[in-house]
Write a protein that binds this DNA or RNA. Structure first.
Lengths: 191, 191
DNA sequence: ATTTTTATTGATTGACTGGTCAATAAAAAA
DNA sequence: TTTTTTATTGACCAGTCAATCAATAAAAAT
C-alpha cells in the first residue's frame, strides 16, 4: 500500500509527535517508539527517515524555531516605529503558539540539549542572537548607548519569565509575562 | 576494612560526585555507576545509602539549595536597609558558589527534573517562593504597591540571566549578570 | 514484463542500566 | 568468644532502547 511522496508527510508527523511526546513526559526521556507510535508508524520508519534519534530532536527544534521566527517577522510587519516593534517582539515571544505546554516543555529541554549537542547549541545561539539583535535594533534609536545593556535585560527577562511561567503551568501565563516585560521596557525607555 | 560511621561521608561524596557528573555531561543522563565511581565506591553502595537514583538526584538538589540559602542568609546579615538587602540577594544569586559550571548545569537540569518529579517540583517551588518573598519584603518599603510586579521582574531577570550566562559559558558570567540586575533594580526604584 | 525505486514493518541484536543479593570482612556488642 | 551490626562489592537479573535488517508490497521506470 505504499503511496509515493510520503517522506515530507512522515517527517512532519514525526516532528509534531516529538513535540507532543516531550510535552507529555516533560523531558527528553522519550523513546523513538513512542514518537513513532503517536505519529502512526513503526520506529523503523522513523529511523529510516531521520537516521537517528538526535536528528529527530533537532528537526523538532528547528520547527519550533521556524514557527517562532515566522511569528516575530509577521508581528514586525504590522508594527510602525521602534517602540511598536519592540512591543511586537515581546508579544511574539509569549504568543499562544510558543506558550502551549508542549512547546514550553520542548524549549526547556532544548536548552538542556544545547549543552550536549553542538548542533542544538548552534540552533539555540541563532535564536538568542536574533532576539538580541531585534531588540538592539529598535532600542538604539530610542536610548542610544544604553541599548546594549537594555537589550540584555529584556532578553534575559523574556527567557526567565518564559522559564518561570512554563514551570508553574498557570493558565494566564503568557499574558502576565507580556505585561511584566512591557512594563520593564517602559522603565528602560523612561530612564 | 570497614570503618564505622561512613554513612555521612559516603552520602556527601555521592552528592558532590553527582553534581560533578551532571556538570561533566551537561545533562541528567548520568548513570549511578558513573557517580559511584567518581565518589570512589561501587554502585551497589550508592544504592545501599540512597535507595534509588532519584533520591541521589534529590539529595544533590537539596544540597545546592542549602548552599544557596546559606549564602543568601549570610549576605543578608551584613546588609543594612532595604536597598542593601536587595543588592545582597541579587549578588548571592550570582555568587561564585552558584556560578561554577557544574552548579549551573545542576540547576538547569533540576528545572527539567522538576517537571517530572513531584519532590523536585516542591523543592524548586521552595526556592522560587523564598526568592520572591525576599525581594518582596524589601521592595515593599521602597515602592509600596508596585513591589509585587517588580519582584516578579527581578526574580525573572535573575533566572533568565542565570540561564543565559550558564549556557554560553563566558568566564565573566556572574559579574556581568549582577551588574545588569542591579541596574534593573535601580530602574524599578527610580520609576 | 521486468527492473528499480520507494514505503513499510516485525523481528532481532547488542549495548546499557537500575536495582538486588549473596558473600565477605571488620568493628562493636554480648 | 560468639553474635550482631555496619561496610562493601562482584555477579547477576530483568528490562529498555536505539539501531539494523531481511522481507514484503506497490508504484514507477525501463
Amino acid at each position: 500500500m505504499p503511496k509515493l511522496g510520503m517522506e515530507p508527510i512522515r517527517r512532519a508527523a514525526l516532528v509534531k509527535a516529538t513535540i507532543a511526546e516531550i510535552g507529555r513526559t516533560g523531558s527528553l526521556e522519550v523513546t523513538v517508539s513512542q514518537i513513532a507510535k503517536r505519529a502512526g508508524m513503526s520506529s523503523a520508519l522513523a529511523h529510516h527517515y531521520f537516521g537517528s534519534k538526535e536528528q529527530i530532536f533537532l528537526a523538532a527544534m528547528r520547527h519550533v524555531l521556524t514557527v517562532y521566527g515566522a511569528e516575530v517577522r509577521g508581528a514586525l510587519l504590522m508594527a510602525e516605529g521602534p517602540r511598536a516593534r519592540l512591543a511586537a517582539v515581546i508579544r511574539a515571544g509569549f504568543g499562544p503558539a510558543n506558550f502551549r505546554p508542549e512547546v514550553i516543555a520542548a524549549w526547556l529541554n532544548f536548552y538542556v540539549l544545547a549543552r550536549t549537542s553542538a548542533d542544538a547549541g548552534r540552533l539555540l545561539a541563532v535564536y538568542q542572537g536574533r532576539l538580541r539583535s531585534n531588540l538592539l535594533h529598535d532600542l538604539r534609536p530610542l536610548i542610544g548607548a544604553r541599548a546594549p545593556d537594555a537589550a540584555d535585560r529584556i532578553a534575559g527577562l523574556i527567557d526567565g519569565l518564559y522559564l518561570h511561567k512554563g514551570l508553574c503551568l498557570r493558565p494566564d501565563g503568557g499574558q502576565d509575562a507580556t505585561r511584566l516585560v512591557l512594563h520593564a521596557l517602559d522603565l528602560e525607555l523612561a530612564a
